[in-house]
Design a binder for these strands. Structure first.
Length: 817
RNA sequence: GCCGCGGUGGUGAAACUGGUAGACACACAGGACUUAAAAUCCUGCGGAUGCAAAUCCGUGCCGGUUCGAUUCCGGCCCGCGGCACCA
């Protein structure tokens, strides 16, 4: 028996392929183009993860099949190499981040190459390469030019351990996403990108793309658009008005108080002398509370009366103004009209501070009414509907009551009528609010793209002219972050001190760098023309290749990278750089690979599976095939070494196959054609696990019955995207001189997959009782008769006359008695 | 709390638009080969009863539709992921 020497085979073919142009994408080819993309890795010091192998292999299978189907496939790879872990590692070891990065890339590259993924290495990119980040900086300048990049003093999430400002997206439960330390608020001047200007388009254009439904919903929820109105409430005895945002203008008649966020700018002006002490104290408390306390300790509402009153424009009643930290400064106008009868939070607050609760919405179905005890007395001021106020508030829609001329209307109609009235009176207008905030784009770190701005004593913030790009990161010895929050770049005098590009006066460079999301927000465009020195990419080439047909990536990037890169592409589309308004036509996601113990793999748990060892011991093809077979591609699965051994056995079986039979029967040919159909379909649907099991069934069968050379070669073609080295080796050893990957993908013959004989199930009352083997062209009545007369069936019929006989062609006969 | 996904053997899982539940693989058990082991090959493998033939039960739980439900409908239970004082 031949010994399956995977190492020798894999090394040999990897060398042969590297010298060929097999996997090179061809600009302008007449063939149909296909651009498939995997998220480029961050080359961390840990090396490649088995999770990378899963998605790279899956898309590799698709890429290889599409090439064999005659398509011009672009399947590129690169390195998303700026980032904090590299900088931290550099600080710890004293090795420069650029050197660390180069080493890590070398490891990743060796590991990926050992897997036989058909990447087009001619298009390799690296976000830390000045020739690349020149264009990242260029995009920033364009954003600045269009007013979409701006500087703002704002409280940012500050991680005291990493000494870095974090975007809202990087803060999880009030803690740093990376190190888990609780974040603080710090007021700092930050560069911001106006992603909110694209909020509507980022929602609406989702309709034009084919993303997994859960990805779309997650993005929509993250943007969090809500329609409503801004309404002005006159402050009693003052000229000023308070602007509130509400999604429920229909409840305005039930607004019995106003709540301002503690930080609201009006607070200090309207507070009365008697209340001032309490208010100041509360404000101080609110400031001291961390984000975590403010969001997590939501058990009880707290707040303070300001002493001031406003007038409800609908009821003309005087209503008290409170401050409370359940109203956020950062959302809406930082002020609300509180409608305790129809909002849970307002209800809770009103009960605690004994504020009147007035029902103005009748729920669609009137349930049992339980009269409210505590607040009836104070509600008495309104003098009505006491008995109808429920113990629980109703926050849904319904029919308006106690709302003057709007009584009897449904919430939806009432809302628009009330808004129309407010607009006419000039005290309100329709508006839209988003949860999405502008993107905090500054990082006080060394290992990132320098922001190409200088501050001139005379001209202020001045963008660098395009000819001065790239603005290179200076090579320095020290890159520790500072406690002051300034970037390490700030201490490099010779770099910071410069002259104004406009007027020549002394100027200082911006010392903040870009976040690591910058380089990955446009990389899919650079693959198309990675060596272009004059432009980000040639516009004709972009037209040829864009959009990406298939984009695979992790769910964890749905609200970060995916949203950011869609935003940047839309911007580039608006300035006529990108030819498409949506960069990715289809977005899919792979399930995570868990450790054998079912836990997430992590260094600290010591349960990480290293792909190098698997390639070494079992071979790249085994690893690839195992990861495709282990479970449904989009679901998480736990690693199982025994499964790997099973796949090794399967490949050895193929390698040593020798049961040749040139007179194979129709059974084998038919099975082969069924397999062609099934495997082709499964690859399209990404059901890789069942594609592999189809191959196993075929191999089991030909081991038993024998198989012709011709059929075996077709089988090798089906196997080749999954186990490219083995398939190529056997293909070659059967006397083929050219690569199997230049072969055409097999097509099945429909007439060959029809069976000559079929098995018909006989059921009595839906229960399986017998099986019949009949010829495929049998007549319906004949089957029915056979079924009735089958010995086993007769036993259950006991001479009873069937009421009904159901026949499903090719499947079953069901006799109902 | 809201949104999304899922629940099938000892394990990973299959099952097209309702039609043989458990394909394929792993683990396990028995056997062959071997001085022995590994490897390989053969057999069995959802549960219960039974010497066997066979019968009954079985896709989270309860109910419905249907000749027939893992699949469709209604109600619940559990697990996972995301968001969360967003007015």
């Amino acid at each position: 028996m031949k010994k399956y020497n995977n190492k020798k085979i894999e090394r040999h073919w990897q060398k042969v392929w590297a010298k060929s142009d097999l996997y090179a994408a061809e600009d302008w080819s007449e063939k149909q183009r296909y651009y498939c993309l995997v998220e480029f890795p961050y080359p961390s010091g840990d090396g490649l993860h088995v999770g990378h192998v899963r998605s790279y292999t899956a898309i590799d299978i698709i890429a290889r099949k599409k090439r064999m189907q005659g398509m011009n496939v672009l399947y590129p790879i690169g390195w998303d190499a700026f980032g904090l872990p590299t900088e931290n590692y550099a600080i710890k070891t004293g090795k420069h981040p650029a050197i660390v990065t180069a080493e890590n890339i070398k490891t990743f590259k060796r590991q990926i190459k050992s897997l036989g993924i058909s990447f087009d290495w001619n298009r390799e990119i690296n976000t830390t390469d000045p020739n690349y980040y020149k264009w990242t900086q260029w995009i920033f300048l364009k954003l600045f030019e269009k007013g979409l990049a701006y500087k703002k003093k704002m409280p940012i999430n500050w991680c005291p351990k990493c000494k870095i400002g974090l975007a809202n997206e990087e803060v999880i439960d009030g803690s740093c996403e990376r190190c888990g330390t609780q974040t603080e608020k710090r007021e700092m001047e930050q560069w911001m990108l106006k992603i909110t200007a694209y909020a509507d388009r980022l929602i609406e254009d989702l309709e034009t793309v084919d993303y997994l439904e859960k990805i779309k919903t997650q993005q929509i929820n993250w943007i969090g658009r809500s329609y409503g109105a801004e309404i002005d409430f006159q402050i009693q005895g003052r000229e000023e008005r308070i602007k509130v945002f509400t999604t429920r203008p229909d409840t305005i008649f039930g607004a019995t108080f106003i709540v301002l966020s503690p930080e609201h700018e009006l607070v200090n002006r309207i507070v009365t002398t008697e209340q001032e002490k309490d208010v100041l104290k509360y404000q101080a408390q609110a400031r001291a509370k961390s984000e975590l306390e403010r969001t997590q300790l939501q058990k009880e509402k707290t707040g303070v009366f300001t002493g001031a009153y406003a007038v409800n424009p609908a009821t003309h009643k005087e209503i008290p103004i409170y401050i409370a930290d359940y109203v956020l400064t950062t959302y809406g106008t930082g002020a609300i009209m509180a409608v305790p009868a129809h909002d849970e939070r307002d209800f809770e607050f009103a009960k605690k501070y004994e504020i009147p609760i007035v029902q103005v919405i009748q729920p669609p179905k009137i349930k049992e009414h339980r009269p409210l005890e505590s607040n009836i007395a104070s509600a008495g001021a309104y003098g009505h509907l006491q008995s109808e106020i429920e113990d629980q508030c109703w926050s849904g829609e319904g029919t308006l009551v106690n709302s003057s001329t709007f009584n009897g209307l449904d919430s939806e109609i009432a809302s628009s009528m009330i808004v129309a009235w407010l607009e006419k009176e000039n005290i309100g207008k329709k508006t839209t609010q988003y949860h999405l905030r502008d993107w905090v784009f500054s990082r006080q770190h060394y290992w990132g793209e320098p922001i190409p701005i200088v501050y001139c004593e005379k001209c202020g913030a001045v963008p660098l002219p395009e000819k001065d790009l790239p603005l290179e990161l200076p090579m320095v010895e020290r890159y520790e972050p500072t406690d002051t929050g300034e970037s390490p770049l700030a201490s490099i005098d010779y770099w910071v001190k410069t002259t104004c590009p406009d007027c020549g006066s002394p100027a200082r460079r911006e010392t903040d760098t870009m976040p690591n999301w910058a380089g990955s927000s446009w990389y899919f465009l650079r693959y198309i023309d990675p060596k272009n020195k004059k432009q980000l990419a040639d516009s004709e080439k972009l037209k040829y290749w864009m959009p990406v047909d298939l984009y695979n990536g992790g769910m964890e990037h749905t609200t970060l990278h995916l949203l950011y890169s869609r935003f940047w592409n839309k911007f580039l589309y608006d300035i006529n750089v990108s030819p498409v308004s949506e960069p990715y036509y289809k977005r899919i996601s792979h399930g995570m690979i868990l450790a054998p113990d079912g836990q997430k793999m992590s260094k600290s748990r010591g349960n990480v599976i290293n792909p190098d060892e698997l390639v070494e011991e079992y071979g790249a093809d085994v690893l690839r095939l195992y990861e495709m077979f282990m479970g449904p591609y989009d679901q998480p699965v736990a690693w199982d070494l025994n499964g790997v051994r099973g796949i090794r056995r399967f490949l050895e079986k193929i390698y040593s196959f020798d049961n040749w039979n040139e007179n194979e029967g129709r059974e084998i040919i038919s099975l082969l054609h069924k397999s062609i159909k099934k495997i082709s379909d499964d690859i399209e649907k990404r059901h890789f696990n069942t594609a592999v099991s189809t191959m196993m069934i075929f191999v089991n069968k030909i081991q038993e019955k024998g198989c012709s050379k011709k059929s075996f070669q077709i089988f090798l073609q089906l196997l080749s995207p999954f186990a490219p080295h083995l398939a190529e080796e056997l293909w070659n050893s059967l006397g083929n001189n050219d690569s199997i990957f230049r072969e055409k993908w097999p097509e099945y013959d429909a007439s060959l997959i029809v069976d000559e004989e079929m098995e018909i199930v006989v059921q009595i009352n839906g229960k399986l009782r017998d099986k019949l083997v009949v010829s495929a062209d049998i007549d319906e009545n004949e089957v029915k008769t056979m079924a009735k007369e089958s010995e086993k069936a007769r036993k259950f019929l006991e001479g009873k006359e069937p009421k009904k006989i159901i026949y499903v062609k090719g499947k079953l006969v069901n006799i109902v008695v």
